[in-house]
Amino acid sequence: MPGRLPLDQQIDALRSALLQNEVLADVLTRAAALRLPDWYLTAGCLFQTVWNVATGRPATSGIKDYDLFYFDATDLSWEAEDAAIAAGRTAFAGLPAEVEIRNEARVHLWYEEKFGVPCPPHRSTEAAIDCFAATTCCLGVRLEPDGRWRVYAPHGLSDVFDLVVRPNPVLAPREVYETKTARWRETWPELTVLPWPTPTGTG
């Protein structure tokens, strides 16, 4: 199983799995051409592609959208982010998928209103990825200008390959984790979803 391989071989296995998703490969190539600062393709499109490959499903099965994060703290206006979104709309035209572009330098401006808890300003795209509701989601990939793959996986890749979903209670509330995992289980019943930790002293 790939989750038991040495890390360098896990990265090779990750790349092999992701390239089976032709939409994802196309998104990566087109995203690189946008030259957004500190960008990564991240979240569900990555780990769900691996789940699909691991369970014998079509590589694109159940993938809702393709999340493209970047980080630009020089201009926190909605207009600047909207310009990047518009550029992406042109770049990804014709793809059979929705690509959502977000400037992670702006997340703290809207996060509390949407999720009910405050979000300190992120200092990088990697810091934003660190805050996903599950550690399994904390994964980012991009193509460097020389064609090399850059993989950010602060919690490793074993859980991704082993279909284990582990909570990450650093920012997102429990309700977000449980809503997401319930939805994922409907598509990938093979998942092992670990429970949200119980605060000490509450039984």
Rank of each mutant, 00 (worst) to 15 (best):
153 A>H: 11
203 G>H: 01
140 G>Q: 11
32 A>R: 14
148 R>S: 15
166 R>H: 13
52 N>E: 07
176 V>G: 00
166 R>L: 09
200 T>R: 00
129 I>W: 02
197 P>C: 07
27 V>W: 01
21 N>D: 04
174 R>P: 00
115 F>E: 03
17 A>W: 04
74 T>L: 09
159 D>M: 04
111 Y>S: 06
94 G>D: 07
181 T>W: 08
116 G>I: 09
194 L>E: 14
42 T>A: 15
191 L>W: 07
12 D>W: 00
123 R>I: 14
184 W>Q: 06
111 Y>P: 04
90 T>M: 06
28 L>F: 10
127 A>L: 08
177 Y>K: 08
50 V>F: 07
129 I>F: 10
183 R>S: 11
150 R>Y: 00
91 A>E: 03
34 L>Q: 02
163 L>M: 12
35 R>W: 13
128 A>Q: 07
23 V>T: 15
125 T>R: 02
20 Q>D: 03
133 A>R: 01
193 V>P: 00
20 Q>E: 15
105 A>E: 02
100 E>C: 06
123 R>M: 08
33 A>M: 05
180 K>H: 02
80 A>G: 04
53 V>F: 01
168 N>H: 15
119 C>G: 06
49 T>R: 00
64 K>S: 09
117 V>W: 14
101 I>F: 08
196 W>Q: 00
136 T>Y: 06
188 W>E: 01
11 I>M: 04
196 W>V: 03
127 A>G: 15
151 V>L: 10
195 P>S: 01
186 E>H: 02
8 D>A: 14
56 G>Y: 03
5 L>I: 03
25 A>K: 02
97 A>G: 02
125 T>K: 04
102 R>H: 12
84 A>N: 05
177 Y>E: 04
5 L>K: 09
77 S>M: 14
92 F>Q: 08
129 I>L: 05
43 A>R: 05
113 E>P: 01
48 Q>H: 06
13 A>W: 02
160 V>C: 05
134 A>T: 14
95 L>M: 03
77 S>C: 11
32 A>I: 06
102 R>M: 11
57 R>D: 07
171 L>A: 11
14 L>H: 15
175 E>P: 02
5 L>E: 12
124 S>Y: 05
14 L>G: 06
138 C>W: 07
18 L>D: 03
132 F>A: 13
2 P>I: 09
181 T>V: 10
103 N>F: 06
110 W>A: 00
83 A>V: 14
28 L>H: 02
103 N>G: 10
200 T>A: 13
123 R>E: 15
37 P>M: 01
121 P>D: 07
82 D>E: 13
109 L>Y: 04
86 A>E: 15
187 T>A: 04
108 H>K: 01
156 G>K: 05
201 G>A: 07
66 Y>R: 00
166 R>Y: 09
151 V>N: 14
165 V>P: 05
137 C>T: 14
29 T>A: 11
31 A>H: 05
